[in-house]
């Protein structure tokens, strides 16, 4: 799972309703420590795609997650992102090249944990949580 996907995962446990806390899902531990396993897989950069995706990203959430995982990301989006090579490269690496292979995400509101195993986040809930 890459951050482009993580950026759309919200806690959806029944009765977990504080929108400020159920997103983004936070990571237990940090990269480099045992809890989170990251891998960079090179991907071809497509600037048009990156610029197109920008307005769809929740930037604040992305910045929090990148910070937690020690993935470099500029603080904010420049006024003309399409012309900013450094920004596009950082964004490309952060959302399309860094893969979380193992880790545990948790909701900052209700504390529910979602595990990532072999790169696949498990968003399934138990019967009583739906």
């Amino acid at each position: 799972m890459r951050l482009i996907t993580h950026n759309m995962l919200k806690c959806h446990v029944k009765n977990c309703s504080d929108p400020d806390k159920q997103f983004p899902l936070r990571f237990k531990g940090t990269a480099g420590a045992e809890e989170v396993k990251l891998e960079q897989i090179e991907a071809e950069r497509n600037d048009e795609f990156l610029v197109r995706m920008l307005p769809r990203l929740e930037w604040g959430a992305l910045a929090i997650t990148a910070g937690e995982l020690n993935i470099p990301l500029p603080d904010k989006v420049p006024s003309d992102p399409a012309a900013d090579d450094g920004f596009l490269q950082a964004l490309h690496t952060a959302i399309l090249e860094m893969h979380v292979l193992e880790g545990t995400m948790f909701c900052n509101g209700c504390g529910h944990e979602y595990k990532i195993t072999k790169g696949i986040p498990n968003m399934l809930l138990g019967e009583h949580e739906i």
Binding site: I4, T5, E42, A43, E44, G119, I120, N122, M123, L124
Partner: peptide, 24 residues
Amino acid sequence: ALDIAAENVEALEAEDVVDLVHAS
């Protein structure tokens, strides 16, 4: 099914494009 999907993604070298999510 997702386990097989992950193997297929690897076999076709599409890890740089495809993410998988386990959800209902």
